[in-house]
């Protein structure tokens, strides 16, 4: 295997992380009309890491390919990725369909094959569905090693091995694997850059290929049915009591003590 990296960075268009999502009237999902969408923050971190690996050693990276599965509007997200530093991109146009992680993993496996990728860096989860499954499923489908929740990534150029520090409960864990490899990113890995104007302009000329799931031979039909989406219950307002006696009385009457 060539030691040059061909990095694939899957990115997802989601409701901006700074905006509070609201459940739609039909209770079938969240309201998407008139809401700001941006690149999923974890995907942004994945992209940033790919760019930093290249900045660390130009000769190491052959190309960075960004891919997104979503509606035609996901082109915006890909343009952002291209403006930040991806070389080329693919949109898998699935219309307005909300894909399940397994479908996404299957689609990505096909793109990995088509792009001859040997490193996939993707967000550990998308902040809309919070599934945290796609990276793991993809590694399984490809039969590649995986390093999830990465907070540090070091590529050793000579041996083609990658050392990843992972965020785990109560500390960190360091793992090492040979390429090819799937890495999912955690929050502390890096801080994504701004897209500069000259790069935004250049990004318009970078390739953006659009394909359909059928072109990749993947069936994306859902296995799960969403029955209902509701807001969490509203927290009851507290009361101010006048004395400890009253407090105890209130707690007693509420059955708390």
């Amino acid at each position: 295997m060539s030691s040059k990296l061909r990095i694939l960075v899957p990115v997802k268009r989601v409701i901006d992380s700074a905006i509070r999502p609201r459940v739609n009237k039909a209770q079938t999902g969240v309201e998407t009309q008139g809401v700001k969408f941006s690149i999923n923050p974890f995907c942004d971190i994945a992209l940033e890491e790919a760019i930093r690996i290249r900045e660390g050693s130009k000769s190491l990276v052959e190309k960075i390919h960004a891919v997104s599965a979503g509606s035609i509007k996901s082109q915006e997200t890909l343009r952002t990725a291209l403006a930040k530093g991806a070389d080329e991109s693919t949109l898998i146009d699935v219309g307005d369909k909300d894909l399940e992680p397994l479908s996404v993993a299957k689609l990505l496996a096909k793109v990995v094959e088509a792009q001859d990728s040997n490193l996939v860096i993707l967000g550990k989860q998308a902040i809309d569905n919070d599934s945290n499954q796609t990276g793991q499923l993809l590694a399984g489908l490809l039969n590649w090693p995986q390093a999830t929740n990465a907070s540090k990534v070091e590529v050793e150029e000579s041996s083609g091995s990658v050392t990843v520090t992972r965020e785990v409960d109560g500390g960190s864990e360091t793992v090492k694997a040979k390429l090819p490899l799937v890495i999912t990113t955690d929050l502390r890995l890096n801080e994504p850059r701004y897209a500069s104007l000259p790069n935004i302009m250049k990004a318009k000329k970078k390739p953006l290929k659009v394909v359909k799931p059928d072109d990749l031979g993947v069936d994306v039909s859902s296995r799960l049915e969403i029955l209902k989406v509701t807001e969490p219950p509203v927290r009851q307002a507290g009361i101010i009591v006048g004395s400890t006696d009253e407090l105890i009385e209130r707690l007693k009457s509420a059955g708390a003590v």
Binding site: D16, I39, S196, L197
Partner: peptide, 25 residues
């Protein structure tokens, strides 16, 4: 912005890509 860059009125620039970047700017 492209016009400004082409006419060399501005030397460099960035555009916020999400709300967090907008707030940080």
């Amino acid at each position: 912005l492209e016009g400004l860059l082409e006419d060399e009125v501005i030397a460099d620039g960035v555009v916020a890509q999400d709300e967090t970047q907008l707030k940080n700017l």
